[in-house]
Design a protein around this nucleic acid. Sequence first.
RNA 1: GCCGAAGUAGCUCAGUGGUAGAGCAGCCGAUUCGUAAUCGGCAGGUCGUGGGUUCAACUCCCACCUUCGGCUCCA
Length: 647
Amino acid sequence: MSPETIQITLPDGAVREVPRGTTAAQIAHQISPRLAKEALVARADDQLIDLSRPLEQNTKVAILTPKDADAVQVFRHSASHLLAAAVLELYPEVKLGIGPPTETGFFYEFVRPEPFTPEDLEKIEAKMHELAAKDIPNERKLMPKPEALELYRNNQQQFKCELVEEKATDPMVSFYTTGKFVDFCRGPHIPSTGRIKAFKLMNVAGAYWKGKEGNPQMQRIYGACFVEPKQLEEYLQKLEEAKRRDHRRVGKELGLFTVSDQVGSGLPLWLPKGATIRRILEDYILEQERRAGYQHVYTPDLAKVELYKRSGHWAHYHEDMFPPMDLETEQLVLRPMNCPHHILVYENKKHSYRELPVRIAELGTMYRYERSGVLSGLSRVRVMTLNDAHIFCMPEQIKEEFAGVMRLVERAYRDLGITQYTYRLSLRDKADKTKYVENDAMWDLAENMLREAMNALGLPYTEAPGEAAFYGPKLDIQLADVMGHQETYSTIQIDFHLPNQFDLGYVGADGQLHRPVMIHRGVISTMERMVSYLIELYAGAFPAWLAPVQTVVLPITERQNAYAEEVNRKLLEAGIRSEFDGRNEKLQAKIRDAQLQKIPYMLVIGGKEAEAGTVSVRHRSKGDLGPRPLEQFSADLKQEIDMRAIV
RNA sequence: GCCGAAGUAGCUCAGUGGUAGAGCAGCCGAUUCGUAAUCGGCAGGUCGUGGGUUCAACUCCCACCUUCGGCUCCA
């Protein structure tokens, strides 16, 4: 090999000898013109680089196309630069923040005295298309750090100065230019703006500089962006679908719940139909827990503030609690968690190792002072009822108890029809001492136990530092909504802290007092959050076992009202949630209304049915199923309900 | 809590300084009908709340409340 050539190893193992200084773009050309056209960016020895970067030494090179997720992120990052370029042309006075890619596009942050209006966004978007059409190259430049700082100081870009100060570790700082727009940026970028076509500016939102409360507020312009127009189209359709399923919208349409500013923010009212769904869920999970050996209790929603001081909640959590109520001789608080109450239930008697594990469960209503800006429908509220339990066990029982909770979770998900979920091991952030109780040995022990328990079950999980509860690590089960957003629903937490705080004990085989371990767990989350999830999962069309109304009886004319009412009564007596629609309306209108209410079964009653003692069955999605004897329909539906069939 | 947008009849929404509108829902009447909206009539609003500007405010200004999109937070 002469000193003027270098060896390039391609992903398939092929080695090419090329002149030193050859670019990835040139290599792509050699491979195929089509690849060169598709290429967005290159990966050289596991690092993403511009296609135009000359290669100086032997390197493994991969040419990345839109099929590669990293390449798409680079594409979106370049789109954010296009946005900034457009904004600077229209509003040269703005100060720039950061502009990274997101999961579905990009954003860029600006500071400007006036807010960006929707009309501004239209203008900006048009300008972006204009700049894209010019196919302006994205060029990388290096500059000494002091010079970079000087440049930004002169342009009065204080946020950029801050970034250069913090992020630039090398003496030389890299910049990217897109026409007149110059941005401090690590890169890489796609070669030019021409391919950025499929984007749409979505909204402008306030965001703290560096995401830190107290920092200046930036205006963050969000855009959706994909390589192919078809993908953008699909994404926008998915957004529409999410809107259609939104539990706040469906909850209103189906009369499930409401909120009133006379009651207060985040304090939803469960209307009869929503309350029915909730009651079914509650009955269901209590039954599952009874079978799994849980004992259910009722404990008060209030307690003396001292209880929470002892547990540690007051020190670590009181910001999220409603302020105490001052009484003559004491202060009471609304509970934000149920653990201390359950601990006192455990403490009510002395426990022998023979009784462990003790599983104390409750549909525990609790109150959290959520900040006004985060409240939303049923999914973010200030009063919530958690399917809560605390297992008091010996350390050697943890693994089996953990597995038992997981069985409950998986059973419940199966019955509820929930299939999209992932496991997240939520650990403490070791650097953030204030957020967690301090005891390194205890944390390490609990974290390792969770890892072992998950490994023993052979379940895949991701680790998330900084997501633990203040008293211990947890295994969270994350459900994904229509848009793919993840939210914690089920959770299992191993806690060595509270048993210490409350000096809990059990008598071991050796006659000595030992410390039990606590497992906090929620299986179907809060009723509020789970119902909101189910509403969106089913878009309001609940499986029969969950549906607030399972059948509606529809007489064709008033002549059949008597028989139809009898049918309705028999269904009610059989334990089926049935309604009778005796309005003076045409059948079609009654069917339409029943369809819109997503009632699983419509029973059409005409002269023939009244005569024969049958019902004509229409299913909300399968349509007309024909006539059958009432008893047969009733038995079939009972079976569907008992099986908890997901139809 | 912060930034932005919005709040008009039960619901969805028109209404840009001069007497508050529609459709659906509701009520009354007619119609008695076979698988996604029958016809007619009636009723329904201190225009989120409170101040201000004006001869006159749903409309302009200020404050607050609530909702929505984000940020931060989170079951």
